[in-house]
Amino acid sequence: MKCRLCDEKAVLSSPNYCKKHFIEYFERKVFRTIEDYGLLDPSDSVCVAASGGKDSTVALYLSFKYLQSFRSDPKVTALIIDEGISGYRNKTLDDLKRFCKDAGIPLKVVSFRQEFGRTLDQIITLRLTDQKPCTVCGILRRYLLNKYSRGFDKLVTGHNLDDESQAILMNLFRQQTDILARLGPVSGVSRDALFVQRVKPLYFCPEKEVALYAVLKGFDVSFTECPYVVFAYRADVRDFLNAYEQAHKGAKLNIVRSFLKVLPELKASYSGKGLRYCESCGEPSSQRVCNACKLADKIIIARDGG
């Protein structure tokens, strides 16, 4: 198969582009998403939630490149949460350290061990909570990302089209419309001084395109899966959706586009509802005590033998 724009061999079947034209197409799509949804402003100071994996590394690189087109010294910092997942996070952390050093991007590392006294592996192995690993990880990661990105104008995440279409289906299947309302290229339903606005430049990029871009650009990133993914409900939805996409091309994009048509009404219906501040840590929360504090209490009690 040849590129649709030249005589070179294609690196992707649909759309069929060669290496050079695929890279141009991909960057154009990301930059257009940033502009169409107002994700980044040239004057923004930006924190990128990085993991050393392909998605967040591509989001980091392209956020930096986009802002660099306006100013020579973009205010971009990478933030990684080291959950303490043996044989996984240490590898991606090394990859990210190298990437940031080469690109001249400051990197901040925050760990579960330092913040909560335990690694994720310890929390799971010692059964300090009966929640699934991905639930524990998600609660604590979101808490730390918000806490340590405070002071920045935006928090960029590497969520791609696959992540978003999976999240939409998962929340529909579970009838969690309140969580559904928080999705979209700009996360959340309410603006609050303590909430850093989360934005998703890879929103319309299929995971396969993100991986291809990372490979073609020669990024030294890990493609290994988190070992806890086998416990995740998301994995079922992901596999189902990939099978459906293979049979019905465009399904993921159609889910997201349909969702975007009703999202403004959905966000408006939840706007300002139920937002309060955790009585324990003072962070924004929909409950009296936030999930992170509830979980942290369990970990501390179990650790101290209480």
């Binding site: 198969m1 294609a10 690196v11 069929n16 998605d55 999976q166 995971e207 493609f223 994995a235």
Partner: peptide, 20 residues
Amino acid sequence: TEDVVLKDSDDIKILSVVSG
């Protein structure tokens, strides 16, 4: 791409792109 015809002498690498 998926239409490319492979020979028995080729070295093939299959890279999983799924995560999450």
